[in-house]
Simulated scan of single mutants.
Amino acid sequence: MSRKHRIWYPGAKYHITSRGNRRAAIFYDDFDHQAYLEILEEVRNYFPFQLHSYCLMTNHLHLQIETIHHHPKEIMKMLNSQYAMHFNKRHHLVGHVFQGRYGAEIIETAEYFLEVSRYIHLNPVEANMVKNPHDYTWSSYSAYISNDLNPHITTSKILSHFPEPQKESYRKYVEGADAPSKHHS
């Protein structure tokens, strides 16, 4: 039985997830998190894409990406395999790091695009790792609500859906579950 083909077209947006094999940790420490982000940038040199938000949890990760010219399977194959090689070598392990195929849910509406970003940024709060999403180091949230620069992400598309002051409006949307007052496609 063959796997269902994933929908793809240039400019398609996705909520990507990858989980550790048997739900095991895929990040042991800050060095692993940083290595993942460095590998992500190397992969982006081969297969350009926009990263709108991310959250690297202990045993799984979330990426909100927008493709340009490459199917996410090319991006994720290289990203997951390169990171798995790093992880296994660094921790003297063998075998699978990730559990099965990555998840890729296509994002087709502006509302869902914003909901995915909020969901990703609230993930550490929902997991009771932090009380406030800006307290979690390994997500893109602080770049959305402060002047912290994050070279891995593009905030403009998501923030364009919010009234001025955009960063404060986005913070209220994420932390207070307010709906944005203006929507663009």
Rank of each mutant, 00 (worst) to 15 (best):
R3Q: 12
I7H: 09
W8F: 12
Y9F: 14
P10Y: 06
G11E: 04
A12Y: 01
H15K: 10
T17H: 01
S18V: 03
R22E: 12
F27V: 00
Q34R: 12
Y36S: 04
E38Y: 06
I39E: 02
L40V: 10
N45Q: 15
Q50G: 05
Q50E: 15
S53L: 03
Y54S: 12
L56Y: 02
M57Y: 00
T58V: 08
L61H: 00
L63T: 09
L63R: 04
E66Q: 15
E66H: 06
H70L: 09
H70S: 13
P72W: 00
K73G: 10
K77M: 10
L79R: 01
N80D: 05
S81D: 13
Q82Y: 13
R90G: 09
H91R: 03
Q99Y: 02
G100V: 09
R101S: 05
R101A: 07
E105R: 11
I106F: 07
I107V: 15
E108A: 10
Y112S: 08
E115Y: 13
I120W: 00
I120P: 05
L122F: 00
L122V: 04
N123A: 12
A127R: 08
N132M: 13
P133N: 01
H134M: 13
D135F: 08
D135P: 09
Y136M: 11
Y136I: 04
S142P: 07
S146P: 05
H152N: 15
I153Y: 00
I153W: 01
T154D: 14
S160G: 08
F162Y: 10
F162M: 02
P165K: 07
K167I: 03
K167Y: 01
E168H: 08
E175A: 06
P180K: 05
P180I: 09
S181K: 10
S185E: 11
S185R: 07
